[in-house]
């Protein structure tokens, strides 16, 4: 298998920094206790930031799963294709 195509999330520190940043952005540690603040569509802004962080985490992890995990997939799929050709 082409080594340049091998991808493993744990080998890429930037992935984990990204997860950390998204998590910390979703927790209101940076605001004083009891703040409600400006509201948008009835919701306090900080709650919308927290919801946005959760949605971003979903999107980010989807991207990681799709683009940064490939250890044996190519080899397995090639084997599976060979098997199915052999049966035909």
């Amino acid at each position: 298998m082409d080594p340049s195509r091998v991808r493993e999330p744990v080998r890429n520190p930037r992935i984990w920094v990204g997860i950390g940043v998204i998590l910390l952005a979703g927790i209101p540690w940076y605001l004083p206790e009891g703040t409600i603040g400006p509201t948008v569509l009835g919701m306090p802004l900080w709650t919308l930031v927290a919801i946005g962080s959760s949605v971003s985490l979903c999107a980010y992890l989807s991207w990681v799963l799709t683009h940064h995990w490939n250890l044996v997939e190519d080899a397995e799929e090639a084997d599976a294709a060979e098997d199915s050709e052999g049966r035909c």
């Binding site: 493993e8 999330p9 744990v10 927290a50 959760s54 985490l57 992890l61 799963l65």
Partner: peptide
């Protein structure tokens, strides 16, 4: 308690720590 949504998502990151290998 919205944190429950994030922690369930983060479980997938937990898998990514070891599941591929």
């Amino acid at each position: 308690w919205w944190q429950s949504v994030t922690f369930f998502t983060l479980i997938i990151a937990g898998y990514l720590l070891f599941a591929p290998r």
